[in-house]
Amino acid sequence: TLEEDLKKLQLSEFFDIFEKEKVDKEALALCTDRDLQEIGIPLGPRKKILNYFSTRKNS
């Protein structure tokens, strides 16, 4: 689940933002850096999230 993935990244504090915006794993895989910025995710966590999901998509 998205919540489990965020826990792996030690970013579970952002789960509420994704839940509020109705972003699940499938939607997050389609998000850009700009999308994450617009919903209030800071730069460092955005980079970690985007890297994590891009490596999952390619495997």
Rank of each mutant, 00 (worst) to 15 (best):
Lys57Gln: 09
Lys48Ala: 13
Thr1Lys: 03
Phe53Gln: 08
Pro42Ile: 00
Leu30Val: 14
Leu50Ala: 03
Phe53Glu: 14
Pro42Asn: 04
Leu30Lys: 15
Phe53Ala: 06
Ile49His: 10
Glu4Lys: 06
Asp35His: 12
Pro45Asp: 11
Lys22Cys: 09
Asp24Glu: 11
Ser54Asn: 08
Gln37Met: 11
Thr55Ala: 12
Glu26Val: 07
Arg46Thr: 06
Asp5Ile: 08
Glu38Ser: 04
Glu21Ala: 15
Gln10Ser: 13
Val23Trp: 15
Glu13Thr: 02
Leu28Pro: 02
Arg56Gln: 13
Leu11Met: 08
Phe14Gln: 07
Arg56Ala: 13
Val23Asn: 03
Thr1Arg: 05
Ile17Asn: 04
Leu2Met: 12
Thr32Arg: 06
Glu3Asp: 05
Ser59Asp: 14
Lys22Met: 09
Asn58Ala: 07
Arg46Gly: 09
Glu4Met: 08
Tyr52Ala: 09
Gly44Phe: 08
Leu11Gln: 00
Phe18Asn: 07
Glu38Asn: 05
Pro45Val: 14
Glu19Pro: 00
Ile49Phe: 01
Ile41Met: 13
Gly44Cys: 07
Thr1Cys: 07
Tyr52Phe: 13
Cys31Glu: 04
Tyr52Gly: 04
Thr32Trp: 00
Tyr52Ile: 04
Leu11Ile: 06
Pro42Phe: 00
Arg46Lys: 04
Lys47Arg: 10
Glu38Arg: 14
Lys7Ser: 09
Lys47Glu: 15
Leu30Glu: 15
Arg56Trp: 09
Cys31Gln: 08
Cys31Leu: 15
Ile41Val: 11
Ile41Arg: 05
Phe53Pro: 08
Gly40Tyr: 00
Ser59Pro: 10
Glu26Phe: 07
Leu11Pro: 00
Phe14Cys: 06
Leu43Pro: 15
Gln10Asn: 11
Asn58Glu: 12
Asn51Ile: 00
Cys31Lys: 15
Glu3Thr: 01
Arg46Trp: 00
Arg56Gly: 09
Gly40Trp: 00
Pro45Arg: 01
Asp35Phe: 05
Phe18Thr: 01
Arg34Leu: 11
Leu28Ala: 04
Lys22Ile: 03
Leu28Gln: 04
Asn58Leu: 08
Glu4Trp: 01
Ile39His: 04
Glu38Phe: 03
Val23Tyr: 15
Asn58Ser: 12
Gly44Trp: 06
Pro45Tyr: 03
Arg56Val: 12
Lys47Asn: 14
Gln37Val: 10
Lys7Gln: 12
Ala27Asp: 15
Ser12Val: 09
Thr1His: 01
Gln37Tyr: 06
Pro45Gln: 14
Cys31Val: 11
Phe53Val: 04
Gly44Tyr: 08
Asn58Trp: 04
Lys47Asp: 11
Leu28Lys: 03
Asp16Lys: 12
Ile39Arg: 11
Lys48Cys: 03
Lys48Leu: 11
Val23Gln: 05
Arg34Cys: 11
Thr32Val: 01
Leu9Ser: 03
Gln37Lys: 06
Thr32Ser: 10
Lys57Glu: 11
Glu38Trp: 01
Asp5Asn: 05
Ile49Trp: 03
Glu3His: 04
Leu11Asn: 00
Leu11Val: 03
Asp35Asn: 10
Asp5Gln: 10
Leu2Ile: 11
Glu38Lys: 14
Phe53Leu: 05
Arg46His: 02
Thr55Asp: 10
Phe14Pro: 02
Ile49Tyr: 00
Arg56Pro: 12
Leu28Arg: 02
Asn58Asp: 10
Glu4Gln: 09
Lys57Thr: 08
Lys48Arg: 12
Leu6Gly: 01
Lys22Asp: 14
Lys25Val: 11
Arg46Tyr: 00
Leu36Arg: 03
Val23Ala: 04
Leu50Asp: 13
Phe18Ala: 08
Phe15Asp: 03
Lys7Thr: 07
Leu36Pro: 03
Arg46Leu: 01
Gln37Trp: 04
Ile49Thr: 05
Asp24Asn: 13
Asp24Pro: 02
Leu50Asn: 03
Leu50His: 09
Glu3Ser: 07
Asp5Arg: 02
Gly44Gln: 14
Glu21Met: 15
Ala29Thr: 11
Glu26Thr: 07
Thr1Leu: 03
Arg46Cys: 07
Pro42Ala: 02
Arg34Val: 12
Leu50Thr: 07
Asn51Ala: 13
Arg34Ala: 14
Gly40Gln: 07
Tyr52Arg: 06
Glu4Ala: 05
Leu2Ser: 00
Phe15Tyr: 08
Lys25Trp: 05
Leu30Thr: 15
Leu2Phe: 06
Gln10Ala: 07
Asp5Ala: 08
Ile41Trp: 01
Asp16His: 10
Phe53His: 06
Val23Glu: 03
Lys47Thr: 15
Leu30Cys: 15
Asn58Thr: 10
Val23Gly: 03
Ser12Arg: 06
Gly44Asp: 14
Gly44Thr: 14
Pro42Gln: 04
Cys31Thr: 13
Gly44Lys: 13
Phe18Pro: 10
Lys7Tyr: 11
Leu30Met: 15
Ser12Ala: 11
Ser12Gly: 09
Pro42Arg: 00
Glu13Leu: 02
Gly44Met: 12
Phe15Leu: 11
Leu30Asn: 15
Asp35Tyr: 14
Lys48Thr: 14
Thr32Ala: 06
Asn58Met: 14
Ala27Glu: 14
Glu19Val: 12
Ser59Cys: 10
Ile39Thr: 04
Glu13Gln: 07
Thr1Ile: 02
Asp5Ser: 11
Glu19Lys: 09
Glu13Asn: 00
Phe18Trp: 02
Leu6Trp: 03
Glu4Gly: 03
Asp33Leu: 04
Gly44Asn: 12
Gly40Arg: 03
Leu36Asn: 06
Glu19Thr: 11
Glu13Asp: 06
Lys47Gln: 15
Gln37Cys: 12
Leu2Glu: 07
Glu21Val: 11
Lys7Ala: 10
Pro42Glu: 07
Gln37Phe: 11
Lys25Met: 12
Lys57Ala: 09
Ser54Lys: 09
Phe53Lys: 11
Ala29Asn: 13
Ser59Arg: 04
Tyr52Glu: 09
Glu26Trp: 09
Asn51Thr: 13
Asp24Ser: 15
Tyr52Lys: 05
Asp5Thr: 13
Lys25Asn: 02
Lys20Ser: 05
Leu36Met: 08
Ile49Ala: 06
Leu43Ala: 15
Asp33Cys: 01
Glu13Pro: 03
Lys47Ser: 14
Val23Arg: 05
Asp35Pro: 00
Thr55Lys: 13
Leu30Pro: 07
Phe18Gly: 01
Lys7Cys: 05
Glu13Lys: 11
Cys31Ala: 14
Val23His: 04
Glu3Ala: 08
Pro45Ala: 15
Glu21Tyr: 14
Lys25Ser: 09
Asp24Val: 01
Leu43Met: 14
Tyr52Asp: 09
Arg46Gln: 06
Leu43Asn: 14
Lys20His: 07
Phe53Arg: 05
Gly40Ile: 00
Ile39Ser: 04
Asn51Val: 01
Asp33Thr: 06
Asp33Glu: 10
Cys31Asn: 05
Tyr52Thr: 07
Asp35Cys: 06
Ser54Glu: 10
Cys31Trp: 15
Arg34His: 12
Ile39Phe: 15
Leu28Ile: 04
Glu38Gln: 08
Lys48Gly: 01
Ser54Val: 03
Leu6Val: 00
Asp5His: 11
Lys57Gly: 10
Leu43Trp: 13
Phe18Arg: 01
Ser54Phe: 01
Glu4Cys: 00
Asp16Ile: 08
Lys57Arg: 07
Ala29Ile: 11
Phe18Lys: 09
Ser12Leu: 09
Thr32Leu: 00
Lys48Met: 13
Ser12Thr: 11
Leu6Lys: 05
Val23Ser: 04
Arg56Thr: 12
Leu50Met: 07
Phe18Leu: 09
Asp5Leu: 11
Glu38Met: 12
Thr55Arg: 11
Phe53Ser: 06
Glu38Gly: 05
Leu11Ser: 00
Gln10Leu: 02
Thr32Pro: 02
Glu13Tyr: 11
Ile17Thr: 13
Phe53Met: 11
Lys57Asp: 12
Ser54Ile: 08
Ser12Met: 08
Tyr52Met: 07
Asp35Ile: 00
Ser54Cys: 06
Glu26Asp: 11
Leu2Trp: 02
Leu43Ser: 15
Glu38Tyr: 02
Asp35Val: 01
Leu50Cys: 07
Leu6Pro: 04
Glu21Lys: 15
Asp16Trp: 10
Lys22Glu: 13
Asp16Ala: 11
Leu36Glu: 04
Ser59Tyr: 09
Ala27Cys: 15
Asn51Met: 12
Gly40Ala: 01
Ile49Gly: 02
Ile17Val: 13
Gln10Gly: 08
